[in-house]
Amino acid sequence: MNKQSVRAFAFGLLAASLALLVYQEAAGANSTSLSKSAMIQKLEKEHYVVLTAKEAIQQKQEKEQLQQKLNRFTAKNDQNGSPKKEKTRQKNSYTLRIESGMSSSEVGRLLEKAGVIEDSEKFNTYLTDNGYAEKLQVGEHTVHPSMSMKEMAVVLTTK
């Protein structure tokens, strides 16, 4: 190795270091923190549902009330019914798996196909008109044909 090749190698290291420094400075200037509304918009683009604490508490309370109502209904039928009715009710319950990116119309079609609802378009219109369509939660949800549209909507939008 001669003097000239050592100088060229040193100059290359210096140029690479300077380029890295300039890149880091530029990247640091672009990484500003997002505002609250920008964060919400970004999450909603990724099909997440953003709820305020008050909305989340309200949904949980609605879900608990509906669960209590379902439990009372089930208990009342158990007292009045026979074992055959229990088996029928078990068959009629349906566990729906909502995947990321599924639309409310797809959910409606699955429920109609399973025999839980009669009209998927009517159900989709209800979800859209009442603001539930954008709040569907990914995961497994158990619904029953005896549930009202509101009850199903609350179950499908609550984890």
Rank of each mutant, 00 (worst) to 15 (best):
S5D: 14
E118N: 15
Y132I: 09
R7P: 01
L96K: 00
Y126I: 07
R7D: 13
V22E: 02
F9K: 14
V50K: 02
Q67H: 05
N71I: 14
L13M: 07
S82M: 05
A133M: 10
F73S: 06
V107D: 06
M102Y: 10
E64I: 15
A56M: 04
L66M: 11
S100G: 05
S31W: 01
S103E: 12
V6G: 03
T52D: 03
I40T: 09
R89N: 12
E121P: 06
K63S: 10
K122T: 06
K122P: 00
K54A: 01
R97K: 14
Q24Y: 13
A27C: 08
N80S: 10
R7C: 04
A38K: 13
S103G: 15
S93F: 04
A53G: 08
Q68P: 02
L136S: 08
T32R: 15
A27V: 13
E86C: 00
S82E: 07
S31C: 01
E106A: 12
S31H: 05
V6H: 13
P145S: 11
H47N: 15
K63F: 12
L13E: 08
T32V: 14
M39P: 10
R72E: 12
N92P: 01
L136I: 12
Y23L: 09
Q41D: 15
L34W: 01
R89L: 14
L111P: 03
Q65D: 15
K3M: 11
